[in-house]
Design a protein around this nucleic acid. Structure first.
Length: 868
RNA sequence: GCGAAAGUGGCGAAAUUGGUAGACGCGCUGGACUUAGGAUCCAGUGCCGCAAGGCUUGGGGGUUCAAAUCCCCCCUUUCGCACCA
C-alpha cells in the first residue's frame, strides 16, 4: 500500500484496536512463564466483584495496572499480570431473589459480560491464569487452607453480636441496616449473640504492626491507617471487688494515672453482671432490651445518644475502698476489651458528658500547668498531662510517672497487671448466607466440634438448594438433609456447619493461586509461588486501605506459619487509586437526571421534562442512583480504548479522585490524532533516514530538539518510577509540540540532520507512549518500519551528552521579589553573574541609593539582592 | 464520634520538596486556512489596572532573604470504621 496518500490515512481506533488485540491474543504475547534466570515482576490489580458490567472505576484500576505491567515488560522483566473474579457475595443473592435466577447463573453471566468488556480495553493480561473464587476448585483449596489454619490453632469459635432482623428472621450486614432499620422489612434491627467462627488475627497483631515499617513502597497514609487500626496501647488491666457480691469486675485502662478520679463504672448490656442484674430487675431487663435495638457498627455506637442505667451494684475502689456505682451503658460493647470501663469524668470527654447527664460527681485529679480546674465550672474534660492532685499518696506526681507508680502499686496488691492491648479484634468469618464457601466443620454431639479431614474435602456448595425453600434465611441451614453427616472421629450422626466464609477469605490468597491456577493436587505450588511472590506492585482502591489489605497480610503470615508460602509480606509496593467522579444533575420534580435529560438554556440547565432549573450538584462518585455514570463501553466504541486510557491517566494523578469530563476526553482524542498525523508525516518525509544516535554538529534546531527528546525520556522514566502518570504524558505532549514546530509546514523529504532527529523524536514518542496507549503506538511503530513487537521492545535510554542545556536562565530578585531574568552560558562564574545581574537596567533602578546587605545565590536558579 | 487524607486560574491540574506559582490539557478570545473535518494551524488567556505597578495557592497568624511547600489556630470536602466488595 504505497499509495501517495497513504500517509494521510486517518486514525481509526476501532480497526487498529481489534487488530492488535487479536494479534496479542493469538500470539499469547502476555503469557507469563516461570523463567528462573529472568527477573520477575508481579503486577497485581484488585480483582473485581462481577456485579454486572464494568464501570469507570474498573477501567481506571486496570489502565493504571496495565501501564505499569507494560512498562516493566519493556524494562526487560518477566511480568505476571493476571485477572480473575471475586465471585462470592451478597449482591448475587439479592439479584437472585429479585430476578428469580440462581446466584451462580447470575454470577457466571456477569463474568462472561465483564470479561468481554475488559478484553476490549487491551489490557495485557495473561488470560490463561484467569480464576473465579466461586469455582468449586478454588473453594476446595480454600477449605484445605482453612483446615490447616484450624489445626494450627488459628481458628476458633466464640459468641459475637450480629444485626438481627426480627421480621425477616435473618442476619443483616451493616450495609443492610439503614437508620437502625432492616433494608427490606423496615423493622428495627436488634443485636443478637451468635456462635461464630474467628481467625486469630490478634495473634499476629505485633508482627502486623512491626512489619509496617518494612513496607516503604506503601503510601504513608495507608500504613498510618493500619497502625491506628491495630491500635497497640499499653495500660493497666485490673479488677474491682464488688460490694456484697462474690464476683469481680475486670477493666482495662490506658490512663492508670487517673485512677483516683474514678467516680463510676460502665458495663456492656451483654456483660454477665448486667445479665445477672436483669434476672431480678425488670427495669434493668427492659433497659438492656432497649440497648439492643441498635446496630453493631462502631460508628453507630459512637454516635449513639449515651444512655445508662444504674445496676444497683457497687464496685470497691482498689485503693481508697470507696463504693462506686456501676452503670449498664448502651455505648459499651462486650467484645471490646473486657466489656467494662472505669469512668473518670474530669479527664475523659465521654465520661464527662455521661456524668453531667446523670448528676455524677466530677473529680479532678490531673492539674494542667498554670490552670486551676474546677469541677463545678468545667465545660469539658481535660485529657492532657499534668500534676496529680487529690490523689492521696500519688499527689504531686507527674502524670507519666503516676501511670507507672499506680500500675505497679496495683500489681503489688495483686489486683492488676500492666498489659499491652490492641484495638484490633479477631476476624469473624462466619456468614449466615448461601452464596459463599461452606466452612468445613462438623458438630458432633459426642466429639464436639471436628474439622472435616483434608482428604474428605471439599464440602461442596449444593447448587440445588437455592430457591428450594420459601423461607427467608440461609438455605444451607434450612435444608434438613444437607446438614446431616457423620462424625469423622466416632462415625456417629453429626451436623455440618451451615455458615459460609466471609468473602475476604477468597481475596486473601487469590494472588497466590494466580501463580498456579492449574494445580489439581494442592492449594499452592510452593516453587511457582516462591518464584512470583511477593507481588511487586499492587494497584487498587483506597477503600481497601485497612480491611482487605490487613486481612491479606495476616493470611500470608498465617500461611507462612503452616508452610504454604515463604516471605513475611505479600505486597511490596502499593498504589491506591482515587475514585472516578462526575457532576450530578438534580431536578426538584424528577430527582436525579441523566446528562441527556437536561438541556442548556443561557447560562443554566433545565429539566427536559418540566423545564425546571436543574441544580448542578457537586462531583460525586459515579453511581447508578445518582444517574452520573458513564458507560466505558460507549467511550471505547466512540473513541477507542486508547483515548479512554489516555484521558484517565492524564486528567489526574492516580492516587487522587478523577473528575470525568467529556471535553477532556475530546482533548485526549485530539492528541492521539495529532500524534498519528505527526508521526506518519515524519515517517513519510524521513523515509530511509536513520534516526539520530548522537548530538548533531551543525543544525541548532536539530540540537535543541534532540535535547528535548532525551529530556523527555528522563522525565517519563522518572515519573513512571514514581507512579506519576499525568506529568509524563504532559512531557510527551511537549515533545510532540516541539517536533511539530520543528517540522513546520514543510512537506518535502528531509534528509538532513533535522530529519534524522525528527525521526528519532517520532520513534521515541511512540516508544514512550506505548505503555499508556498500546494499540496506536504498535501501529505507528509498524508504520515507521519497525518489525519487532513494541510490547517487548527495550525501553529507550537517554544520552547524557544530549541532555546538557547550553544556556541557563536564572531569576533575579530584589528583596525576594522577581524583577528580571538573566540568560547566560552554562559556565559563567558566579561573580560575573552577580555583576551582570546588578547591571540589568530594571535591577539598577531598584538598587539605586540602597545598601545591599546580602546577596543570596542559588546556583543555576536565582540571585536575590537583599537591601535596606 | 474515632482514624486518614485533600483544598492552587473559568475547569482538570503542575511546581526538581523552601527558590520564576499556574507546565500540560480543557474552555474562552482573536486570526488564518479551508479537500467543511469529531477539522486543522497561528496568537493570546490568573486577578485588578490605560499604564507604571499591585495582588494571588480555603481563612487567620508565625518562621525565613525567600513559603503552595515548614509551625500554630480555624473552615470545608472526601474516604474508612470490622457482615458492601
Amino acid at each position: 500500500m504505497n499509495d501517495i496518500d497513504d500517509h494521510k490515512k486517518k486514525y481509526n481506533p476501532q480497526s487498529i484496536e481489534a487488530k492488535w488485540q487479536s494479534i496479542w491474543d493469538r500470539e499469547k504475547t502476555f503469557q507469563a512463564q516461570e523463567l528462573p534466570d529472568r527477573k520477575k515482576y508481579y503486577l497485581l490489580v484488585m480483582f473485581p466483584y462481577p456485579s454486572g458490567r464494568i464501570h469507570m472505576g474498573h477501567v481506571r484500576n486496570y489502565t493504571i495496572g496495565d501501564l505499569m505491567a507494560r512498562y516493566q515488560r519493556r524494562l526487560g522483566h518477566n511480568v505476571l499480570h493476571p485477572m480473575g473474579w471475586d465471585a462470592f457475595g451478597m449482591p448475587a443473592e439479592n439479584a437472585a431473589i429479585k430476578q428469580g435466577v440462581h446466584p451462580k447463573a447470575w454470577t457466571l453471566q456477569n463474568i462472561a459480560t465483564m470479561r468481554k468488556e475488559i478484553k476490549s480495553m487491551g489490557i495485557s493480561y495473561d488470560w490463561d491464569r484467569e480464576l473465579a473464587t466461586c469455582d468449586p476448585e478454588y473453594a476446595h483449596w480454600e477449605q484445605v487452607l482453612f483446615v490447616k489454619l484450624y489445626e494450627k490453632g488459628l481458628v476458633y469459635r466464640k459468641k459475637s453480636l450480629v444485626n438481627w432482623d426480627p421480621v425477616d428472621h435473618t442476619v443483616l450486614a451493616n450495609e443492610q441496616v439503614i437508620d437502625g432499620k432492616g433494608w427490606r422489612s423496615g423493622a428495627t434491627v436488634e443485636r443478637r449473640e451468635l456462635s461464630q467462627w474467628f481467625l486469630r488475627i490478634t495473634a499476629y497483631a505485633d508482627e502486623l504492626l512491626a512489619d509496617l515499617d518494612q513496607l516503604s513502597g506503601w503510601p504513608e497514609t495507608v500504613r498510618t491507617m493500619q497502625a491506628n487500626w491495630i491500635g497497640k496501647s499499653q495500660g493497666l488491666e485490673f479488677f474491682f471487688h464488688l460490694k456484697g457480691h462474690p464476683g469481680t469486675l475486670p477493666v482495662y485502662t490506658t490512663r492508670p494515672d487517673t485512677l483516683m478520679g474514678v467516680t463510676f463504672c460502665s458495663i456492656a448490656p451483654e456483660h454477665p453482671l448486667a445479665k445477672e442484674v436483669a434476672q431480678h430487675n425488670p427495669a434493668a431487663e427492659a433497659f438492656i432490651r432497649e440497648c439492643q435495638k441498635c446496630g453493631t457498627s462502631e460508628e453507630a455506637l459512637e454516635r449513639l445518644e449515651k444512655k445508662g442505667f444504674h445496676s444497683g451494684l457497687f464496685a470497691i475502689h482498689p485503693i481508697t475502698g470507696e463504693e462506686i456505682p456501676i452503670f449498664i451503658a448502651n455505648f459499651v460493647l462486650m467484645g471490646y476489651g473486657t466489656g467494662a470501663v472505669m469512668a473518670v469524668p474530669a479527664h475523659d470527654q465521654r465520661d464527662f458528658e455521661f456524668a453531667r447527664s446523670h448528676s455524677l460527681p466530677v473529680r479532678v485529679v490531673i492539674q494542667p500547668p498554670g490552670v486551676e480546674l474546677d469541677p463545678a465550672t468545667m465545660t469539658e474534660a481535660y485529657t492532657g498531662p499534668g500534676l496529680l492532685v487529690h490523689s492521696g499518696q500519688f499527689t504531686g506526681l507527674e502524670s507519666e510517672t503516676a501511670k507507672k507508680e499506680i500500675s505497679t502499686t496495683l500489681e503489688s496488691l495483686g489486683k492488676g497487671k500492666i498489659t499491652v492491648h490492641f484495638r484490633l479484634r479477631d476476624w469473624g468469618i462466619s456468614r449466615q448466607r448461601y452464596w459463599g464457601n461452606p466452612i468445613p466443620m462438623i458438630h458432633c454431639p459426642t466429639c464436639g466440634v471436628v474439622a472435616v479431614p483434608i482428604t474428605h474435602l471439599p464440602v461442596p456448595l449444593p447448587d440445588d438448594l437455592w430457591g428450594s425453600s420459601e423461607a427467608i434465611g440461609n438455605p444451607l441451614a434450612l435444608s434438613p438433609d444437607w446438614k446431616k453427616t457423620t462424625c469423622p472421629l466416632c462415625q456417629g450422626a453429626a451436623q455440618r456447619e451451615t455458615d459460609t466464609m466471609d468473602t475476604f477469605m477468597e481475596s486473601s490468597w487469590y494472588f497466590l493461586r494466580y501463580c498456579c491456577p492449574d494445580l489439581k493436587t494442592a492449594p499452592l505450588d510452593r516453587q511457582r509461588v516462591d518464584y512470583w511472590l511477593p507481588v511487586d506492585h499492587y494497584v487498587g482502591g483506597i477503600e481497601h486501605a485497612v480491611l482487605h489489605l490487613l486481612y491479606a497480610r495476616f493470611f500470608h503470615k498465617a500461611l507462612r506459619d503452616v508452610g504454604e508460602v515463604s516471605g513475611n509480606e505479600p505486597f511490596t509496593r502499593l498504589l491506591t487509586q482515587g475514585m472516578v467522579r462526575k457532576d450530578t444533575h438534580f431536578c426538584p420534580n424528577h430527582g436525579w437526571r441523566y446528562p441527556m435529560q437536561v438541556k442548556e438554556q443561557g447560562e443554566g440547565l433545565l429539566c427536559c421534562e418540566c423545564d425546571t432549573p436543574i441544580q448542578v450538584g457537586r462531583n460525586e462518585k459515579m453511581s447508578k442512583s445518582k444517574h452520573n455514570v458513564i458507560d466505558p463501553n460507549d467511550i471505547i466504541q466512540n473513541y477507542g480504548a486508547d483515548t479512554a486510557r489516555l484521558f484517565m491517566l492524564f486528567a489526574a494523578p492516580a492516587d487522587r479522585d478523577l473528575e470525568w469530563n467529556d471535553r477532556g476526553v475530546d482533548g485526549a482524542w485530539r492528541f492521539l490524532n495529532r500524534l498519528w498525523r505527526l508521526v506518519r508525516q515524519i515517517g513519510w518525509q524521513t523515509e530511509g533516514v536513520s534516526p539520530a544516535t548522537c548530538m548533531p554538529s551543525t543544525s541548532l534546531p536539530a540540537r535543541k530538539l534532540r535535547t528535548k527528546v532525551h529530556q523527555t525520556i528522563v522525565k517519563v522514566t522518572q515519573d513512571l518510577d514514581r507512579n506519576l502518570f499525568n506529568t509524563g504524558i504532559a512531557a510527551v505532549m511537549e515533545l510532540v509540540n516541539e517536533a511539530s514546530l520543528a517540522l513546520g509546514k514543510n512537506e518535502e523529504p528531509m534528509l538532513d540532520e533535522l530529519g534524522s532527529v525528527l525521526r528519532e523524536a517520532a520513534l521515541t514518542a511512540v516508544m514512550l507512549l506505548n505503555p499508556y496507549v498500546p494499540h496506536i503506538t504498535e501501529e505507528l511503530w509498524r508504520d515507521l518500519g519497525q518489525q519487532d513487537p513494541l510490547s517487548h521492545h527495550s525501553w529507550p535510554q537517554a544520552d547524557p551528552l544530549s541532555l546538557v542545556q547550553e544556556e541557563i536562565t536564572i531569576v533575579v530578585q530584589v528583596n525576594g521579589k522577581l524583577r528580571a531574568t538573566l540568560t547566560h552560558p552554562k559556565e559563567t562564574a558566579q561573580a560575573d553573574m552577580e555583576i551582570a545581574a546588578s547591571n540589568l537596567p530594571q535591577i539598577c533602578k531598584l538598587l539605586e541609593g540602597k545598601t545591599i546587605h546580602k546577596v543570596i545565590v542559588v546556583p543555576s536558579r536565582l540571585i536575590n539582592f537583599v537591601t535596606n
